[in-house]
Design a protein around this nucleic acid. Sequence first.
DNA 1: GTCTATAATATGATAGAC
DNA 2: GTCTATCATATTATAGAC
Lengths: 200, 200
Amino acid sequence: MSELQPPPTRKIGKADVARAEILSAAAGLMRRVGYAEMSLRDLAAEVNMKAGSLYYHFQSKDDLVTEVMRIGVEVVEAAVREALARHPDLPPTDRIMIAVRVHLDTMLKKSDFVSSHIRCYPFVPTPIRNRLREVRRSYDRIWIDLLGEYLGPDAAYDDVRYLRHLLIGALNGALEWFNPNRDSAMAFAGHIEALLRNAR
Amino acid sequence: MSELQPPPTRKIGKADVARAEILSAAAGLMRRVGYAEMSLRDLAAEVNMKAGSLYYHFQSKDDLVTEVMRIGVEVVEAAVREALARHPDLPPTDRIMIAVRVHLDTMLKKSDFVSSHIRCYPFVPTPIRNRLREVRRSYDRIWIDLLGEYLGPDAAYDDVRYLRHLLIGALNGALEWFNPNRDSAMAFAGHIEALLRNAR
DNA sequence: GTCTATAATATGATAGAC
DNA sequence: GTCTATCATATTATAGAC
């Protein structure tokens, strides 16, 4: 996972590996049990450590949690931006569908960082939410731009906002029902596409 | 709140009032801080009690939480069923929009029971989720029926499922962005309506 | 019905040995 | 870097007085 690597100018040491393992394990735990119920003892056990050792890598539980969630937005943002960059000239609806599929796929199959962010954000303490505001805004901007093009220059600001919230809500909701053994992200995306293509 | 009253055959005593106050306060706390972070001390303080006193009314924290969440589904189900019963002969799209508006309105403005259920369900222990399965199924059935009529008798089972998850996800997502001072539930519902009317 | 007091356990965090 | 040991505090739950 490239997002967990330190800057390439520095050599990857033992601490970097341990830190990355802690972050991965924390993302998985947070997604499953939530922010408050993820104890540092349980987390440490998952990476064969003792709770106190985590403090060599992170100053506090909230610092660790913030880092997990920050990586989450950055992962999905990078995935969506890359996919869109490969198809710069498609019409708006097609570009939205690319973003829809990549968002779903990253969240459901690829990254506990993304899913733990989405699930835990509502209950995380305010200081953590504040520290995440900027990265979240940056990802939102992708959708604001995509939907702005879709609705056209005459659309009201709030029209873009409501449509964005509707879409992101539908996508993130999949976290609560999607079963990889039974469900198809592409089939789900197809239903979103049908609604978007016929409207407007 | 009629849902908090005991069966009408029994007189409403002091215990019933206290119990109802505890449940209301718990719903508010759960919505704000989540299942794990709602301590029984904080809850007791909100109703001017001590933590131990709660055990006169409930056998355990999880029993109390289950009851709060059970009431949540029952409240929104009753509201939607009543509204639909008043317009039995409208076309499917109109009936869906009635359900959309009542679901949004109940969740956002009326009931901490509904919103705490939606927010906390993903992180609540499995035994609690099992005890809620039946009431949740009952509410789901409303939407399965509504969307089944909308898509017509030829629609596949999964088409109804995906569309239902999409819709409920968009609605429940409002819990995370809706600001009563700034946003309009009706405007949001309007965007959903535009998509549904033009599709199919 | 609600209180006080407390048991039993868990938590985030720190200090210092190795 | 990770450990052990521990502090200070918080948690759910219970027992018995009032």
